[in-house]
Design a protein around this nucleic acid. Structure first.
Length: 580
RNA sequence: GCGCCGAUAGUGUAGUGGUUAUCACUAGGCGUUGCCAACGCCUAAACCCGGGUUCGAGUCCCGGUCGGCGCACCA
């Protein structure tokens, strides 16, 4: 349509002016990386989150949980964030370049940088050259920069806590309870929508990169050998352009294919990842992302987290920022559960029962505790343990305890060969993780909804929201504020509100001005009470995008508006279109 | 963090050291108005923060904050 000089500026200006998004605590001077959602923005965000819930909680059946945004240090030691999210940094005194101190050490042939103290590392790299300007560094300060916000828990306590950098860990640490909730059966999933925090060095690009942001994440626990999605048929024929890492390396364009083909050809690792790639496409289109501004890009092998076997990003095209990573869908394998099991000492496995028990020969060596115990006392426990794995002969068994070979006579233990039923095995599930950046989705919806057109030579600014995400769902206007028209409009407003519809009454100014106000905040429909209303109990319903109107009875308004707003009915399918 | 640029009513702006900071739109009130930002009258509303130079600073200088861009960073 109209070429907009800079959509980002127009959108953010409108967002600020009309109460969608603004900078936080402006009266004290804003802080980079933090935003407030205003009245309309918070409503829009909630509607987007609710659509997400429809997909993941209601349709997929993965219940939502809510964990604290602060967790104790052990959680993030296990997840790798304490170490991996923290870099040893230093600054070149000559060119002011910020450098990874450990990389400088590696480049200078110094080993063991990761185990040195900051002071030792600083001393070690003093003789190294700055990789940027080639000058010898000399005296530098090495410090840790961790992207997690740290805090302490409790009064005067030294117990360290961190604000979570992702919601995912909450689902992992709750694994055992979730497994019980889902009655010890794979696959199952849990989701969480909430705030996460990263102390970004340089937050930029409006609301694209924030220090506090909202994530919607699902962790789906699956059997490692069964990555076939039970409902794969739903999206098997769903097609979309896929930009594989091979395409990217060869500088080729994305190729459109169905999910079935993508899995069969090995383009996408498994059905689970493919299923959520397709579901994500479906979801993003539902909230109003245009398909031609949406692509799925596979992570390059060196870009993937070390544990992920496959990872796809949903990228939304922004006229300002180019392709913006908005959703990541990764197969995290068993990395997280293993890490938490090790750190916490709690097993995080599922018992998978075999369809048929397996017969297995087993030899058990049963020691005569009363005799051996007395004989070996403190060593007894170690002796028992060693004996279990010993290879007994006719005259006994030799075990080695603390380097000492001890002969246990055959009469002090019994060897039992038995056939046992193995009914199943403990396995560590793999995790499929779709992770959504809600703020980026909100921005994408705003940017893509923004439009300007020309009506009677005048510019009209309109947010072409899907009715499902529009904060205000319908506006109600009396044509005149007299002759009882305002009373009727007021009654209609209240009737709609009682049905759970967010209706806004407005009688201020000319009717055209009121339509324009609602256009600018993306209200999809407007009801006008006119003089005919008093005679026929009908009102006009006006469509934001076409500006066309139809006349319908007051009594059918609640059901009609509901259907229009939740997408069950299109405006064009209403009878008796007329231009008034 | 570094470098460059910027910051004046809600929004967009004018203002090259000197009265009471310009204009438009927006918003609120009253009147008018029989369907797409009409009109009249009235009202409200701003120099990012801190320091300095000066008789006098929105204007000049320094520092900070925020924003944009380029680097760097982005498990």
């Amino acid at each position: 349509m109209i070429l907009m000089s800079d959509v980002f500026e127009n959108v953010m200006d409108l967002a600020k002016r009309r109460g969608f998004i603004w900078q936080t605590s402006e009266c004290y001077g804003a802080v980079a990386g933090f935003i407030d959602y205003g009245p309309l923005g918070a409503m829009m965000k909630r509607r987007i989150e609710d659509i997400w819930r429809n997909f993941y909680v209601i349709e997929e059946g993965y219940y939502e949980i809510e964990c604290p945004t602060i967790a104790q240090e052990a959680v993030f030691i296990a997840s790798g964030h304490v170490k991996g999210f923290s870099d040893k940094m230093c600054q070149c005194p000559h060119c002011k370049e910020y450098l990874r101190a450990d990389h400088v050490a590696d480049g200078g042939g110094i080993s063991g940088a990761s185990t040195m103290t900051n002071e030792a590392l600083a001393a070690a790299i003093a003789a190294c050259k700055c990789p940027a300007c080639e000058e010898v560094l000399g005296t530098v300060e090495v410090y840790n920069f961790n992207l997690m916000f740290a805090t302490t828990i409790g009064p005067g306590s030294q117990r360290i806590g961190y604000l979570r950098p992702e919601t995912a860990q909450g689902m992992f640490v709750d694994f055992a309870r979730l497994l019980r909730f889902y009655r010890d059966t794979l696959p199952f999933g849990a989701v969480q929508i909430g705030k996460s925090y990263r102390n970004e060095i340089s937050p930029r690009q409006g609301m694209i990169r924030l220090r506090e942001f909202t994530q919607a994440e699902a962790e789906i626990f699956v059997h490692p050998d069964k990555k076939t999605h039970p409902k794969f048929a739903r999206y098997a024929d769903y097609t979309m352009p896929l930009l594989t890492y091979v395409h990217q390396q060869n500088g080729e364009e994305a190729v459109t294919m169905s999910m079935r083909v993508a899995v069969d050809k090995g383009v996408i690792a498994n059905e689970y990842v493919a299923y959520y790639v397709a579901l994500t496409h479906d979801l993003l289109v539902t909230i109003g992302v245009k398909p031609d501004r949406l692509r799925f890009r596979q992570h390059l092998p060196d870009e993937r987290a070390h544990y992920a076997t496959d990872c796809w990003d949903a990228e939304v095209f922004s006229q300002r920022f180019g392709w913006v990573e908005t959703v990541g869908i990764a197969d995290r394998t068993d990395y997280d559960l293993n890490a938490h099991a090790k750190q916490s000492g709690t097993p995080m496995t599922v018992f998978i029962q075999y369809t048929e028990p397996r017969k297995e020969n087993r030899r058990r060596i049963i020691p005569n505790m009363s005799v051996l115990g007395k004989q070996y006392r403190q060593k007894a426990k170690a002796v028992f343990a060693a004996l279990e794995h010993a290879t007994p002969t006719a005259d006994g068994a030799d075990v080695v305890v603390d380097g000492e070979t001890i002969h246990i006579p055959a009469n002090l233990f019994e060897v039992r060969d038995e056939v046992v039923d193995i009914r199943g095995e403990e396995i560590v599930p793999h995790v499929i993780e779709p992770s959504y950046g809600i703020d980026r989705m909100c921005y994408a919806v705003l940017e893509q909804a923004y439009d300007e057109d020309t009506v009677d030579g005048e510019k009209r600014t309109v947010l072409r929201f899907s009715p499902r995400v529009a904060p205000v769902q319908v506006a109600v206007f009396p044509l005149m504020t007299r002759d009882g028209l305002d009373t009727i409009a007021d009654e209609i407003t209240h009737t709609l509100k009682r049905k759970g519809i967010l209706a806004e009454y407005d009688d201020s100014g000319a009717i055209g001005r009121r339509y324009r106000r609602q256009d600018e905040i993306g209200t999809p429909f407007a009801i006008t009470v006119d003089y005919e209303t008093k005679e026929t109990r009908t009102v006009t319903v006006r469509d934001r995008d076409s500006m066309k109107q139809v006349r319908i009875g007051i009594d059918t308004l609640p059901q009609t508006i509901s259907a229009l707003v939740n997408g069950d009915m299109k405006f064009t399918s209403l009878p008796a279109h007329q231009n008034l």
